[in-house]
Amino acid sequence: SSDLSIRGLGAPLRMMLSAAKINHDIYMYDIVEDGNNDGWTSSYFQTKKSLQTESKNALVNLPFVVDRKECRLLCQTNACFAHIGRCIGMFGTNDVEASICEQLLCEIYDLRYPYIIFCYRSDGSVEEAKKAFAQAEPHLQKLNSHLANEANNGGDDDKKVHHLVGGVFTAPDFHLFELLDQFQLIAQTLGISDDFLGQYPRLKEFKTGFEELEENQFYLKSWLHEGLPFNNCMSKAGSALNVGVFQRGQKAEWRGKGEISMNP
């Protein structure tokens, strides 16, 4: 899989492959300062055209996944989730569950949108963060209710639910976990709440349980989780390590990784 050298949209794809114990290669493109200008540049901008030509895929964008067995490149986040999920048995056990996975992936992307607006189109202030969390609230409530329904489907309202579909790993688990982790840490860092997920008990239960699962330990203990910023260096939140804000010209130890082989 390929993405920028951040957690971003690539993180849940990498986490999913690691949980499935699939050996895979990652390529990370850096965004760096553009000389003496105030802009930014990346080697990805120079290679995008050749990627489109070589893969015969005019839609190439980040993140993308290269399926070497099928000799094809796929892009668009939810398409990447669906393809990997189907290949490794993490997209439901039947057509009904696959449709639920698709619905959840779309809902989780809707949840992501106000967060991205906050990070890249605001001043990164506490007030703007609170606006973003307020806009995310309806989506968080729906996902919280979905998990309650999952518990009820098993006939036990008190059951702790650590998966979104059928009590097993599916692609949307990973995107939701990544977003909840970032929301929680942003809220703590900005002093908004030390228990952001406390108002969504099912989501809190999901996140706590999901990160404790044995299958996720390889990824969560790796530098991919701990050693990359959430967002690109122009973001007003999570653009440096420890949920910091990147200052132009500062040291960026997460750059220069290039291609990495992962063997979970």
Rank of each mutant, 00 (worst) to 15 (best):
N153F: 11
L164D: 00
T208W: 13
L185C: 09
K159D: 10
A151V: 02
L213P: 00
L213M: 13
Q217E: 12
G227W: 02
L224S: 03
D194Y: 02
F183G: 03
A171L: 12
P172T: 09
Q188A: 10
N152Q: 14
H225R: 12
F218Y: 12
E178P: 07
D156F: 00
W223V: 13
N152G: 10
L190C: 12
Q182C: 13
T189D: 12
G155F: 02
K160V: 15
F177H: 09
E226A: 14
N149F: 08
E178L: 01
T170P: 00
D195V: 14
E214R: 10
A171D: 03
G155R: 01
G155M: 02
P172V: 06
Q199D: 13
H163T: 10
F196P: 00
D157W: 06
L179K: 07
N149P: 09
G154D: 07
G167D: 07
G154R: 10
L190W: 04
K221E: 15
V168H: 12
H162S: 14
D158K: 11
N153L: 12
L213K: 09
N216K: 10
G191C: 10
L190H: 00
V161M: 01
D157T: 09
W223C: 10
G154W: 01
G198W: 09
L176F: 13
L228N: 02
E212W: 12
K207E: 13
T208M: 15
P201V: 03
F177A: 04
T189G: 07
F206D: 10
P201K: 06
N153S: 10
I192W: 03
S193D: 09
I186C: 03
L224Y: 07
L185P: 00
D195T: 11
E211R: 14
R202H: 06
L179S: 07
F206L: 07
Q188P: 00
Q188L: 12
L224H: 10
L180M: 11
L179H: 13
G154V: 01
D173R: 01
A187V: 02
L180D: 03
Y200A: 01
L180I: 12
L185D: 08
K221G: 15
T170H: 03
Q217D: 11
Q182P: 02
L190F: 05
F210N: 11
V168D: 14
D158T: 14
E215Q: 15
L228V: 07
